[in-house]
């Protein structure tokens, strides 16, 4: 446990120093831990675990957009888990309300019904569709088609700077939409 968390702190320091690969590795490394926590939280709240991935993605976006609040002298894990906890609580609160309404509406059809098939992370995908064209194109290209910033720039005849701006604005807009919807 200790060793894993020290490794995270080291990776985050490298990431903040500009090492994109270290950042990628860090996010990959924390994701299973966040996923397990999200599943546990949903289970404890008596909700199906199929929304865990939406919560994981919300946490990752918040981690990304708020990483300047991490103090590079401090260990990374407590900071990460504080954000994860806040996002999980928010998500459960939102879903709690929604689930409550659903149960009122469909109380009679519920018993014996098979749980819904796992639909992984539909919310980010849904909100992606509401972004301005350019931000959506850039996010699609980099995330889904795993193109580099450079390739994306030449594909849409944009400057690399413009791609970077569109990428960041897109991620920030996604986060705001997820929070407020």
């Amino acid at each position: 446990m200790r060793g894993r968390e020290d490794e995270w702190t080291g990776l985050m320091r490298s990431a903040m120093a500009g090492d994109d690969a270290a950042y990628h590795r860090l996010l990959k490394a924390v994701t299973p831990v966040l996923r397990a926590a999200a599943r546990r939280g949903l289970a404890r709240a008596g909700q199906p675990p199929d929304q865990a991935e939406d919560i994981v993605q919300e946490i990752l976006l918040a981690v990304h957009l708020k990483r300047h609040t991490w103090d590079s002298e401090a260990p990374f894990a407590p900071w990460l888990f504080a954000i994860a906890r806040n996002k999980l609580i928010d998500a459960l609160r939102r879903r709690g309300r929604r689930v409550f309404v659903n149960i009122d509406d469909f109380a009679e059809t519920l018993p014996g019904e098979a749980p819904q098939e796992t639909a992984s992370a539909s919310e980010v995908a849904a909100q992606l569709g509401t972004l301005p064209q350019r931000q959506r194109d850039v996010l699609q290209s980099i995330a889904v088609e795993s193109a580099s910033i450079k390739d994306t720039a030449s594909k849409y005849s944009m400057s690399e700077g413009a791609v970077r701006v569109a990428l960041h604005r897109g991620l920030a807009a996604l986060t705001a939409k997820l929070r407020d919807h």
Binding site: A15, G18, D19, D20, A21, Y23, H24, L27, K28, T31, Q57, L60, L61, H64, A121, V124, L139, I142, A143, V144, S146, S148, I149, R164, L167, H168, L171
Partner: peptide
């Protein structure tokens, strides 16, 4: 895919 886009924005 999301992680890839976050890393690209590092």
């Amino acid at each position: 895919q999301l992680i890839r886009s976050l890393a690209a924005d590092n």
